[in-house]
């Protein structure tokens, strides 16, 4: 079970309290009705499936109920950071304190 830090509660809480909500930073157009087929396809259907760093949305369902964003490594499942909804995609990631250490 993962431990996830809720940026609103400012606490690490067990995964049971959260629900994943798909990829983050996919903005809904302000002119939705005017979107081209291609743009709508990108918006609605196309998702990245990276091996490594993914930006995704989570909801602290059984806590504060807020949606927030997280940066997670899909290889190790480790959370690099979490931040509030609406905040920009981080341009630089913090050095992961938990990164794989050679013995």
């Amino acid at each position: 079970m993962l431990l996830i830090r809720c940026p609103y509660c400012e606490e690490e809480r067990p995964e049971l309290e959260f629900r994943n909500a798909g990829e983050a930073h996919i903005a809904r157009s302000a002119n939705m009705a005017g979107e081209s087929d291609d743009d709508f396809e990108k918006f609605f259907f196309i998702r990245s499936n990276p091996k490594g760093i993914i930006y995704e949305r989570w909801r602290h369902m059984h806590g504060c109920a807020r949606f927030f964003n997280a940066v997670r490594d899909t290889v190790t499942d480790k959370f690099v950071m979490t931040y509030k909804a609406g905040e920009p995609k981080p341009s630089k990631l913090p050095k992961n304190s938990n990164e794989v250490v050679a013995k």
């Binding site: 909801r59 369902m61 909804a85 609406g86």
Partner: peptide, 13 residues
């Protein structure tokens, strides 16, 4: 409820 909260919090805050 989840669908409404999602839009309210993230698309139409």
């Amino acid at each position: 409820m989840n669908h409404m909260e999602d839009y309210l919090q993230t698309e139409f805050p």
